[in-house]
Design a protein around this nucleic acid. Structure first.
Lengths: 351, 351
DNA sequence: GTGAAAGCGCTAACAC
DNA sequence: GTGTTAGCGCTTTCAC
């Protein structure tokens, strides 16, 4: 078996309590004693048992992050942001990938219930908001990334999906587009929904108004975007531009266009979201929206960690921490072909 | 505070020991007693405290995975493989991303020393093999992915880097290439080194022999590949094909070619490794090698988990678990332009 | 088949 | 400043 604190204590000629004090630099310890203890620790290569420490101190020094898929760069970057911040404060991070397990998010609360983690960060655009509120009300420390949560003790870090979507549509309109289609994500995903709202708002402001026929849902996947695009075409309503709620679905549009011989951007302008690395390499380069994902992870982790440091706020006491971060449009070739006139009749797709 | 086992015991009218037996379905418990206990657990929404359980049982039911960068698809897939297998056996996974911390791998052994994890999986191509051996000899359970380790109690799962590299070069030779350059990774990375060995072996077998001037190291990054390619050109030794030890560096070659007006594959054939998703989208599509990354993660996790289940093998007792998996070439446009003749003078690059 | 009791290795009062 | 002691919540002999 490993060495324990009592062994170190004996070797240093002190009590276990003093060793503990040195280990956690809690109270003052005489410099000479501290040296002796440190030396003994080094000599015997002592490592405090994490479980015992956790059991006694009631803290695990660990936070969890729940993401839809670690193999999506956006989420991987968020994780790195969280991890970096957490490690700098002496915390560990445990990552849960729930790909293919939509709706199982509540399972992860067990990590909180059995005290495996001190706090949990959710990146779960489609989970019902109530499940978060319920846990927070029980006194658990949780945070959410990528969506706004209306709950005083749930910090969240998000970007204004509607705002940048308005910019995307305005960009299309400036290029002369009037018939603009939208491909959304899962119906329940809040971020995709907000992007749809921005799309409609912008169309309305531009005096264009929206056509229900120009809206389809993909499922955030390339294949879903591909099929959504084909459905849009089948409806026979002409359009000259497509705004896809993420880059994956935009790639699906590329695929369909390649099969159908539709030229991007001359015949169809395309815009995505996420700044997936592929968007920079594919031909033509895909216009997209960059979210500061690493920053979002880092900022929310910081907020949560500081919450863990404080005394638990009483029920109803506000944590007051909604962090909004800016996203920016990256305009590339796929959306920059200026159309003459821009009248409805210039549409040459659909039907 | 949360409910504890004694609360459940009281509610069910039994002793804590019995509740524990039900929880871990250890020994036989009368069906009726078990029902009562289960009901009480449900009623009070009881969750056993993980730290207490760990401290008492000396097992954390957690394994760790150390990867160079979670935002590299190859590693993300390995992780998913590990996670999937681990979860199916009731284990948690904790992931450590050491990007930008090359050489700090030994730090992660602390996870083992303080019993935060029961086992550790390393995906660390450039770490010194001795550090693993040292830990394994101390009785810790560790495994390695992506390289072969000559140590009886360190299971590993790897692919034959030299073998597929030979195939890559043979493919080039069949296309008529004679002057073939190689861009390696970090000098210490075992996988990149084995790819270099395969490259040299194939050249030798084909009766071509190798030119030291045609070998440069990148650092597995796009930028590194870019610079390595420029260095190769500066040396003035003509070549018509490049084998890059990973796709990232191949992308760097693409970038350089684009700037210099070199056409791929007509003037230069390119081959990468990893089947990075971008390789399928970039123009021209990049030929590459696909490693079964998810499978590697899953298989090694299974091996390690089964090791944890057994009694610790005595020192010197073999775990006997080197798992070799097959990789396959994916030949795309970047390497399929057949050259006439194939004489040395047909080289038109370099100088 | 079930209960009593003894710790797992550590930290936090509380003494001194 | 440092030592003593009492648990944290669970599992696991050992009785019965």
């Amino acid at each position: 078996m490993d060495k324990k604190i009592i062994d170190v204590a004996r070797a240093a000629g002190v009590s276990p309590a003093t060793v503990s004090r040195v280990l956690n630099n809690r109270e003052l310890v005489k410099e000479k004693t501290r040296e002796k203890v440190l030396q003994a620790i080094r000599d015997m290569n002592y490592h405090p048992n994490a479980a015992a420490k956790q059991l006694r101190s009631q803290r695990t020094m660990t936070i969890g992050v729940i993401v839809p898929d670690i193999n999506v760069s956006l989420f991987a970057e968020i994780i790195k942001g969280v991890q970096n911040k957490a490690e700098s404060k002496g915390y560990h991070v445990i990552i849960c990938d729930y790909s293919g397990r939509k709706g199982r998010e509540p399972d992860y609360f067990a990590l909180l219930h059995n005290r495996t983690v001190d706090a949990l960060i959710f990146v779960a655009p489609e989970a019902a908001a109530e499940i978060f509120a319920e846990e927070a009300d029980k006194g658990f420390t949780i945070g959410v990334i990528g969506r706004q949560i209306e709950h005083d003790s749930i910090p969240c870090c998000y970007t204004d999906n509607a705002a940048f979507s308005v910019e995307v549509i305005q960009h299309f309109v400036r290029q002369g587009h009037r018939q603009i289609a939208f491909i959304g994500g899962y119906p329940e995903a809040t971020d995709a929904f907000e992007r749809l709202e921005g799309y409609m708002k912008a169309l309305h402001r531009s005096g264009i108004g929206f056509q229900p026929a120009l809206i389809e849902n993909g499922d955030f996947s390339e294949e879903g975007g591909y099929r959504a695009f084909l459905r849009l075409r089948e409806k026979g309503h002409a359009f000259t531009a497509v705004y896809a709620a993420n880059d994956e679905m935009a790639l699906g549009v590329y695929k369909a266009c390649s099969e159908l011989g539709i030229r991007i951007p001359e015949e169809l302008a395309v815009f995505g979201v996420d700044n997936n690395r592929i968007s920079r390499y594919i031909t033509p380069h895909l216009s997209t929206v960059e979210q500061p994902s690493y920053l979002m992870g880092s900022m929310l982790a910081e907020k949560l960690l500081s919450l863990l440091g404080e005394e638990k706020p009483g029920p109803g006491e506000a944590a007051d921490s909604r962090i909004e971060v800016k996203s920016r449009l990256i305009i590339r070739e796929s959306s920059t072909f200026h159309r003459e006139g821009g009248s409805a009749s210039s549409g040459n797709l659909g039907g």
